[in-house]
């Protein structure tokens, strides 16, 4: 059987049914625009904008991916249309990749909203765009799989959203986005290094203004590890909980 046909059609269906719907476009695009404006307009100079850019990019990706994935998965599960996918002759890993690739793409697109804004307001020369792109992709993949892990645990869309907030908000404050990890209380620092966003933000910081703390190859490696582990845990939970 040609599994790629199933893969692309699930991806295409999700884009049409969920990601390209006006409420989601507004959440995905307007939300990062609002953040970008809020932070950038309050900045005193263009240096501030460059300083803030890693944080705004990471937030846009994190919220875009985790919010929509819980909708596409939990909503379909509730309406039982997800059963149709489970009953199809598609490998469960491929199925979950097809279900998550939309969220990853959505997260990556979201990341470019603050970048486009910043391009008009500040000088973005000297940035290592390859590392920025790599970091955005890995943050999107990790956040999506974190969203997947949470969605599999939840039964309802609102439950998934609530659980997501338990991860999202502490992560924002502990990952070094607004307060550098080195300035966090000593007791909290170990927790920072348990969060995937810490490594994603650090790559962005290194790429944008060169003041990251962790060697870039370690961050890429750790993020890849987080992605693989979260995907493995999620698909294992799906097999365990949804094929009961």
């Amino acid at each position: 059987m040609n599994s790629s046909i199933a893969f692309w059609n699930i991806f295409h269906k999700d884009l049409r049914n969920y990601y390209f719907k006006p409420p989601n476009i507004s959440w995905g695009i307007i939300f990062p625009i609002a953040w970008a404006l809020m932070f950038f307009l309050r900045s005193r100079n263009t240096l501030d904008i460059r300083d803030l850019l890693p944080g705004v990019i990471a937030m846009a990706v994190l919220f875009g991916t985790t919010s929509l994935l819980s909708v596409t998965l939990n909503f379909e599960r509730k309406s039982r249309s997800f059963e149709r996918l489970l009953l199809a002759p598609i490998d469960s890993n491929l199925l979950m990749l097809a279900k998550t690739i939309g969220a990853i793409a959505f997260g990556i697109i979201n990341a470019f909203v603050p970048i486009i804004f910043a391009a008009f307001l500040a000088d973005l020369s000297g940035i290592n765009w390859l590392n920025v792109l790599g970091s955005i992709v890995l943050i999107a993949v990790t956040s999506t799989f974190l969203g997947l892990f949470i969605s599999v645990t939840a039964h309802e869309v609102f439950e998934a959203q609530t659980y997501s907030n338990f991860f999202r908000f502490p992560m924002l404050f502990l990952c070094g986005l607004f307060i550098p990890v080195s300035q966090l209380p000593v007791v909290l620092r170990p927790f920072s290094y348990l969060l995937p966003l810490t490594y994603g933000t650090d790559i962005l910081k290194t790429a944008i203004h060169g003041n990251g703390l962790i060697p870039i190859w370690i961050s890429f490696l750790v993020l890849t590890g987080f992605s693989l582990a979260l995907f493995w845990l999620s698909t294992r939970n799906i097999k365990k909980k949804w094929i009961y």
Binding site: M1, S3, I5, A6, K13, N17, S79, R84, A88, I90
Partner: peptide
């Protein structure tokens, strides 16, 4: 799928079988 029409639903289901 509630959002899709009859034809799209059938066509999507067929794609799941390659």
């Amino acid at each position: 799928y509630e959002e899709m029409n009859g034809f799209e639903n059938l066509s999507f289901c067929a794609s799941l079988y390659g």
